[in-house]
Write a protein that binds this DNA or RNA. Sequence first.
DNA 1: GCATTAACACGTA
DNA 2: TACGTGTTAATGC
Length: 239
Amino acid sequence: MADALPLTLRQRARRPTPAELDAIPWLALLDGNQRERAIAALAVADAGPGERLCRIGRPATFWFGVVDGLLKMNNDDSTGQAVTFTGIPPGGWFGEGTLLKRESYLYNIQALRPSTVAGLPIDGFHALLDDSIAFNRFVLNQLNARLGQFIAARETDRIHDPDVRVARNLAALFHPLLYPGVGSWLRITQQELGYLVGLSRQRVNQALHGLSGAGLIRIEYGGLRVLDLDGLRRFTGCR
DNA sequence: GCATTAACACGTA
DNA sequence: TACGTGTTAATGC
């Protein structure tokens, strides 16, 4: 059942604390019984930098969510060049598409920094789909939002201006529906953002100062504050 | 020209 | 102390 979790993570799996449960956005949508059963099925674990939560080809057994920290979704880096598809900040849940199809994971998920991750076993996930309209709506909204993000990401990838790419990637990470745990302050280092966008830390630093000068964000130690999310999405360059 | 790596100083948690 | 940021110099496409 828990085969998809690396052994080291499985050994560390524990019961979620009340504060961690508060960081799970869909729990509040459930009625009493559903909520109790979901909480009983949920497990959390702490992952260190570089640790993998999903590996391509492993059977999908959990629906995962980020309680705290930062993950990245990437392809198989052994065959060719590594491609990062997206970063996943706090409040983000992923893997539902694979669970729905009862297939194997199609991507790797790796922690970029020390992270706390929650997992709902596949049986509990399908039980909620069978029982709760609100939960179905949550999953539907999430799939829809993410489809929009990936369409936008295709466009972003063709833009070569690094400042614009940083702006678009940041806007994605601040998506209020997909990543409700982020709010207006995202804990991310310039190095981590470089990994996600595919730029050097120095170039990210330069881009962030451009965005800061445009009044879209504020650079803070160890993270960023968004002042104008729509402006970040629409940003087309400093000139 | 522009981005990257390497290296260093400095400030913060 | 360890880590994150700001900056410069050298290198490569």
